[in-house]
Nucleic acid binder design. Structure first.
Length: 439
RNA sequence: CGGGGCGUAGCGCAGCCUGGUAGCGCAUCUGCUUUGGGAGCAGAGGGUCGCAGGUUCAAAUCCUGCCGCCCCGACCA
């Protein structure tokens, strides 16, 4: 992408409404525009990152055997009356009436609808297990939206729902999602730690929150440092195999809890040198809730014995839009965002220090073509801005690499390659710089 | 939902107390000079002062109501 053709409204000054660093940086980097409290337009740069995160989640869900579908944002109130939650949910639910005076709601989650879909088609245990997921916008009318995308009212979420004949099967389904979550967050460059959670209004018994450690996190967390070194299953993980040992290692070997459920006495059993008190951001949550919805909504399947039983369910959420905030909170410096490679909106920024100079133009174009065909998605700054502004903007938007090309370097046969994360800069010939980036 | 605060040019702000024809910085546009970490000079454009009432000869400024947004707390992904 050539910057002159792109839409990247970076701001030199910080808008007054933004308090926390991720919100400030997203506004300054031209990723996001607030349209109302907790409601945002995703500008091109932000949208690119959103799609990258979404795609990682999608790939890991698919790998774990989940099947993608797409449910609507609007749901009928009657569906929620079946589970009793239409009354329970309160003012957080955005309620809408259509021209026929029919009561609708903008979905804050989809347990009822997925249960309705499942029961319409599945009658036999032979169709199980199943895991259906979608990635869709949700709305919760928060009393006090804040922290930018971290606590918006409208947010993009992946939610998966598992269906099994019995608890044993449901636990295996839970374990598959648990492992998939470990992999998802790691791929995004995050350390997300599963912590035992209260299940909240969605209800259920077995539940974990996946917490990203960040100094500016919303809640306090307590953990055993050693949990950070636990291995995460690779791409070749066998989702048909027994994942219980992995889950057990992450959930029972070392202490890790949010302040809500913190047990000081148990934490004290952790060796003093290993105890960490930190802050964290929840980016995902897993629940097993059995027949909480299937029973009242009559989603039943016949078992091998011919007896009909409510299906055993779990749900598994990932806050896709919130993850942008979490990643920035966990990865930034004074100058701006530092994107992990896997979610960076562009892989490399090419900075032309002298557009119009024949040698510089030729080197830039050649680098742009090579990096494009290598799939690096370069952002090529060929605008007429001054160098200082270009450097500052490139640092702000946080692309992993900067390839800086100017007449002074070229006279010596070199370009400059900067790694955003470390700040390390090297002068080297263009072909070597390209090899370093693509290698 | 309790408490506090703020709405003035695209962004950041001053002006309001003490009413008298709306200002600063950045950004934008034009010209010249500059060009490796947010340049200089000269000029220009851009605002129903959140909205609606009221008081007054006169309202950004005083009064009333409403709307929007932010912060702390409770709550939540």
């Amino acid at each position: 992408m050539r910057l002159s053709r792109y839409f990247l409204p970076v701001l030199k000054e910080t808008p007054a409404e933004a308090q926390i660093v991720s919100h400030r940086l997203m506004l300054r980097a031209g990723m996001l525009r607030q349209e109302a409290a907790g409601i945002y337009a995703w500008l091109p740069l932000g949208f690119r990152v959103l799609r990258k995160i979404e795609q990682i989640v999608r790939e890991e869900m698919d790998r774990a055997g989940a099947v993608e579908l797409l449910m609507p944002t609007l749901q009928l109130a009657d569906l929620w009356r079946e589970s009793g939650r239409y009354e329970d949910y309160g003012a957080e639910m955005l309620r809408i009436t259509d021209r026929h005076e029919r009561e609708l709601l903008y979905g804050p989650t989809n347990e009822e609808m997925i249960t309705e879909i499942f029961r319409a088609y599945v009658r036999s245990y032979k169709a199980l297990p199943k895991n259906l997921y979608h990635i869709q916008w949700k709305f919760r009318d928060e009393q006090r939206p804040r922290f930018g995308v971290m606590r918006g009212r409208e947010f993009l979420m992946k939610d998966a729902y598992s269906f099994d004949l019995d608890e044993t099967g449901a636990k295996a389904a839970y374990n598959r999602m648990f492992v998939a979550y470990l992999r998802c967050f790691k791929r995004m460059g995050l350390s997300a730690i599963p912590m035992k959670a209260e299940s909240g209004p969605i209800g259920g018994e077995l539940s974990h929150e996946f917490i990203v450690l960040a100094q500016t996190g919303e809640s306090g967390v307590f953990l055993d440092r050693r949990i950070l070194d636990l291995p995460i299953p690779g791409e070749d993980v066998d989702y048909d195999g027994d994942l219980e040992p992995v889950v057990t290692a992450w959930t029972s070997r070392f202490y890790a809890a949010t302040e809500d459920v913190h047990d000081a006495a148990r934490f004290a059993e952790t060796p003093e040198g290993e105890r960490v008190t930190a802050r964290g951001i929840e980016v995902g949550q897993t629940f097993f809730f059995g027949d909480k919805y299937s029973k009242p909504m009559k989603a039943v399947v016949s078992g091998p014995d011919g007896v009909e039983r409510p299906v055993q369910m779990g749900s598994y959420g990932v806050g896709i839009s919130r993850l942008l905030g979490a990643i920035i909170e966990a990865s930034h410096d004074e100058a701006g965002i530092i994107w992990p490679d896997a979610v960076a909106p562009f892989g490399v920024g090419i900075i032309s220090l002298r557009p119009g100079d024949a040698l510089v133009d030729a080197a830039c174009e050649s680098a742009y073509a090579a990096l494009t065909s290598a799939g690096l998605e370069p952002l090529y700054d060929e605008t007429d801005e001054r160098p200082g502004g270009k450097f500052a903007a490139m640092d702000l938007i946080g692309l992993p690499w900067q390839l800086i090309i100017g007449p002074r370097g070229l006279a010596e046969g070199n370009v400059e390659l900067k790694r955003r994360a470390s700040g390390e800069r090297r002068s080297l010939p263009l072909d070597q710089a390209l090899a370093a980036i693509t290698g």
